[in-house]
Amino acid sequence: MEIVLAIAIGGAFGFVLDRVGATNPGYIIRMLNLSDLHLMKTILSGIGTASILMFAGLLVGLVDPGHVSIKAAYLGVFIGGLLLGVGFAVAGYCPGTGLTAAATGRWDALWFILGGLLGAAAYMLSFAWVETTGILENIAGGKTTLGPIAGTDYPSLIGVPGEWIGLAAGLAFLAIAWLLPDRLTGASTPTVRAPVE
């Protein structure tokens, strides 16, 4: 059954990534150089929508709290984020969009994937050393959420019920998506969309 769900949800995810423009590195680069915030608005409203549905689902008992899965916070999360950000801007690909872009027929994405496999292998080989540096030690409690989520053991930063904070955060993401302009740089010329293929 899980495999059927993997095929259905994974397939839908890939299809939607293509239809929002995320498999086109032009859209990602133009999001990051702030000349076309289409994808930024899409991602923020996607997070907001998912957050509201999930926390509403937790409140009414539709979502199993056992499915909530929080990753640990440690200094390496920030450093890793910085590294991803640099490569994300140069290539216009992240791991998921690189794989889906290759599936749409982009050859540069194949080179990105090859580099990615080498980078992941380099991490596998250097993991034991990275661990000795201490940057993998948990900070702020590790697998921490903003507020406590009922039915889970995750630590939280503040005492207000996590479901309500989650709904508020979801609305905030939608509001930011709504309020962001179409572009922040080069506003003297109209937004030039990447060519359509």
Binding site: I47, A50, S51, K71, L83, G87, G115, Y123, A169
Partner: peptide, 29 residues
């Protein structure tokens, strides 16, 4: 870029999907 992105993602324990989207939707620090 692929090398740097995947090294960084593994160091962080997730990428744009796992940390940014799935993480922030669950209010994960």
């Amino acid at each position: 870029a692929g090398f740097v992105v995947l090294y960084g993602s593994r160091l962080a324990g997730g990428c744009t999907s796992g940390h940014m989207m799935s993480g922030m939707m669950q209010t994960a620090l």
